[in-house]
Amino acid sequence: MASQGTKRSYEQMETDGERQNATEIRASVGKMIDGIGRFYIQMCTELKLSDYEGRLIQNSLTIERMVLSAFDERRNKYLEEHPSAGKDPKKTGGPIYKRVDRKWMRELVLYDKEEIRRIWRQANNGDDATAGLTHMMIWHSNLNDTTYQRTRALVRTGMDPRMCSLMQGSTLPRRSGAAGAAVKGVGTMVMELIRMIKRGINDRNFWRGENGRKTRSAYERMCNILKGKFQTAAQRAMMDQVRESRNPGNAEIEDLIFLARSALILRGSVAHKSCLPACVYGPAVASGYDFEKEGYSLVGIDPFKLLQNSQVYSLIRPNENPAHKSQLVWMACNSAAFEDLRVLSFIRGTKVSPRGKLSTRGVQIASNENMDAMESSTLELRSRYWAIRTRSGGNTNQQRASAGQISVQPAFSVQRNLPFDKPTIMAAFTGNTEGRTSDMRAEIIRMMEGAKPEEMSFQGRGVFELSDERAANPIVPSFDMSNEGSYFFGDNAEEYDN
């Protein structure tokens, strides 16, 4: 993207840094990872977990959730003011799984939030270390993106479920800051804005008074975040219109849905970061690795190297396929839920299948599930090659597409044709070009129609051997075009429920 120079890199967003050079960025990201790792080690000690239990991804998720809940100030305040039966607002906890007599047992633990905050700050040299908290939120978000298709949420806001490739980060909490905003897809931002506008339509006082002023500035800020994701002048001009509207209503909703559809071809720039579970960072720190000293990046080879040398386990339900569970977590670790499966298959070195073909449910185990038949197995999170994460949407291309997802959002900077089903997408653009945004709409449609099938995206960008740390010898991959490109292809993934 041309304006790259004016933006802070995501590592800076990730670490609240002012302008830093590459070495400083690597050190501050490393410091953040160190903090998460030290916190995780301490929690495993508190909970008396064995090494194996500490490497269980379900335990990692519970521990991450506990610290996120302990620092969720708004919710904590709300819980104190609106006490609900049987919930102690000062405590947080969740299921911890232990191996007892050759069987997995679930144990519900409860801790004072104050105590968890103390352990977290102690692991982070006394700081609140917001960057580390956001990092864990993005890992949870990436896992949700890989596990669930947001059909219901899309339909509720009037969008087409086939636009799911635009929904990265749709389950990120509001408090995820600049680093969170960077990884949100165009569809996620559109959905947040539509929800806001709908509230304004239904509630006369939404934009009024002292609160209304705050609401208005939040609305304009979200519009600017979305505008910054678009790469064409016409899309940005249309966002200006939406932002400046005196009284946002149905016309703005129409414009936003139009823009979301246009992003299936004229893709937005959305950041991709490899955020790993805390149970990967903990053992690495415990083994003596100093992330701050060595430096770390979320968008280069580092996460690949770390996963190459990590042992992570997962509980497996009786009829689940461990290899499929591994694929789910591998995609989440690489922030690749909406990437082209052919690119992923090449990088991973084994075939990556669409969601609907995987015999696996989510990673988390519900409290009512029976533990008797639970097994555990090693997650295979290694890769054959590594590639640089991208934040450009890439230019655009036609490809055989599917009944489910009709476009992709690249996660890796790797040369390819970008699949999208042009006739299906263009069919949504018939007729409606009147109104105050008509010239911009016409211009956007013209650009979409001009998108050429034979153009290559990320020209000359390749993948790298894991021994090639400096990215000196790019390998331009070859793809098996007979395979499906979309992950949520004609899909039956479970729906995400809060």
Rank of each mutant, 00 (worst) to 15 (best):
A2T: 00
S3C: 03
S3V: 02
Q4C: 08
Q4H: 04
Q4M: 11
G5R: 15
G5H: 02
T6M: 02
R8Q: 14
Y10S: 04
Y10W: 00
E11C: 10
E11A: 07
E11H: 08
Q12T: 08
M13W: 03
M13Q: 01
M13D: 14
E14D: 14
E14H: 00
T15G: 00
D16K: 01
D16E: 13
D16H: 08
D16L: 01
E18T: 12
R19P: 05
Q20K: 02
Q20I: 01
N21A: 03
N21G: 04
A22N: 08
I25G: 14
A27V: 14
G30N: 15
M32N: 15
I33G: 13
I33R: 00
D34L: 14
D34Y: 11
G37V: 13
R38W: 12
F39R: 04
Y40Q: 11
I41C: 12
M43C: 08
M43S: 04
T45A: 06
K48H: 12
K48Y: 01
S50Q: 14
S50V: 03
S50M: 08
Y52A: 15
Y52M: 13
E53R: 08
E53M: 07
G54K: 04
S60R: 09
L61I: 14
L61E: 10
E64C: 11
R65Y: 01
M66A: 11
L68T: 09
L68R: 06
F71K: 11
D72L: 04
D72E: 12
E73H: 08
N76V: 15
K77P: 00
Y78L: 01
E80C: 13
P83Q: 15
S84L: 14
S84A: 15
G86A: 11
G86N: 15
K87I: 05
K87A: 01
P89H: 05
P89T: 03
G94A: 05
P95Q: 06
P95K: 07
P95I: 03
Y97V: 08
K98M: 15
K103Q: 04
W104H: 04
M105N: 11
E107Y: 02
K113V: 01
E114H: 04
E115G: 13
R117E: 07
W120Y: 14
A123W: 10
A123H: 04
A123P: 05
D127Q: 14
D127G: 11
D128C: 07
D128H: 15
A129L: 10
A131L: 01
A131W: 02
L133S: 02
H135Y: 09
H135C: 07
I138H: 03
I138P: 09
H140M: 06
S141P: 11
N142D: 11
L143T: 06
D145V: 06
T146K: 08
T146G: 02
Y148P: 08
Q149G: 03
R150V: 01
T151Q: 06
T151E: 07
V155H: 02
V155P: 01
G158D: 03
D160M: 09
M163Q: 04
C164K: 09
S165F: 02
S165G: 10
L166C: 01
Q168H: 07
Q168P: 11
G169L: 06
S170P: 06
S170K: 05
R175E: 04
R175A: 02
R175K: 15
S176P: 06
G177V: 10
G177Q: 07
G177D: 05
A182N: 15
G185V: 06
T188R: 02
M191L: 15
L193T: 11
R195L: 08
M196F: 07
M196E: 07
G200N: 05
D203K: 12
N205L: 01
W207N: 07
R208M: 12
G209Y: 13
G209H: 10
N211V: 13
G212R: 06
G212M: 13
G212H: 11
R213A: 04
R213S: 05
K214Y: 14
T215G: 15
R216S: 08
A218S: 15
E220A: 06
E220I: 11
E220M: 10
E220W: 11
E220F: 06
C223M: 13
N224E: 13
N224Y: 10
I225C: 13
G228E: 13
F230E: 13
A234I: 12
Q235M: 05
Q235T: 12
R236H: 04
R236K: 15
A237H: 14
A237S: 14
M238T: 07
M239D: 06
D240H: 13
V242R: 06
R243K: 15
E244R: 02
N247S: 15
N247I: 08
G249I: 08
E252D: 10
E252M: 06
I253W: 13
D255A: 04
D255F: 03
I257T: 11
F258R: 05
A260Q: 03
R261E: 09
A263G: 14
A263I: 01
I265T: 11
I265Y: 00
L266E: 07
G268N: 12
G268F: 07
G268Q: 06
S269T: 14
V270A: 12
K273H: 05
K273T: 07
C275K: 07
C275R: 08
A278S: 12
A278L: 11
C279R: 03
V280F: 07
Y281S: 06
V285P: 08
A286M: 12
Y289M: 12
D290N: 13
F291Y: 14
E292Y: 02
E292I: 13
L298Q: 07
L298T: 03
V299T: 09
V299C: 06
G300I: 06
G300Y: 04
K305Q: 14
K305G: 08
K305L: 06
L307T: 10
L307R: 05
Q308T: 09
Q308E: 01
S310Q: 13
Q311D: 00
V312P: 00
S314I: 05
I316M: 14
R317M: 07
R317G: 04
R317T: 05
P322M: 11
P322H: 07
A323Q: 13
A323Y: 07
K325G: 03
Q327H: 09
Q327F: 08
L328E: 01
W330V: 08
A332E: 10
C333G: 14
C333R: 01
N334K: 02
A337Q: 08
A337R: 11
A337P: 11
F338W: 12
D340C: 09
D340M: 09
L341E: 09
V343N: 14
S345M: 04
S345T: 15
S345F: 04
F346R: 04
I347E: 01
I347H: 03
I347T: 08
G349I: 02
K351C: 04
K351P: 10
R355P: 08
L358C: 10
R361Y: 04
G362Y: 05
Q364N: 05
Q364Y: 05
Q364K: 02
A366I: 11
A366C: 02
A366P: 08
S367V: 04
E369L: 08
M371F: 02
D372G: 09
D372N: 14
A373N: 14
M374W: 07
M374F: 02
E375G: 09
S376Y: 10
L379D: 02
L379V: 15
E380P: 02
L381H: 07
R382E: 06
R384D: 00
T390V: 05
R391E: 04
R391W: 09
G393F: 02
Q399I: 02
R400T: 07
G404N: 03
G404C: 08
Q405H: 01
I406L: 11
I406G: 00
I406D: 04
V408Y: 06
Q409I: 14
P410V: 05
V414F: 03
R416G: 06
L418K: 01
L418I: 15
P419M: 12
D421R: 02
K422V: 07
P423D: 04
P423K: 15
P423F: 01
T424L: 15
T424V: 14
M426R: 05
A427D: 01
A428M: 03
G431Y: 15
N432I: 07
T433S: 08
T433D: 07
E434S: 15
R436I: 06
S438F: 05
S438A: 12
A442K: 09
E443D: 15
I444S: 01
I444N: 03
I445S: 06
R446L: 04
M448E: 12
M448A: 06
G450D: 11
A451P: 00
A451H: 13
A451L: 14
K452R: 14
K452W: 00
K452Y: 11
E454N: 00
E454C: 14
R461A: 14
G462M: 04
V463L: 10
F464C: 02
F464D: 07
F464K: 00
E465A: 03
E465I: 01
E465Q: 08
L466P: 12
L466W: 15
S467W: 01
A472K: 09
I475L: 11
S478Y: 14
M481K: 12
N483R: 00
E484D: 10
G485I: 00
Y487N: 09
F488I: 09
D491F: 02
D491R: 05
D491T: 03
A493C: 04
A493T: 14
E494S: 00
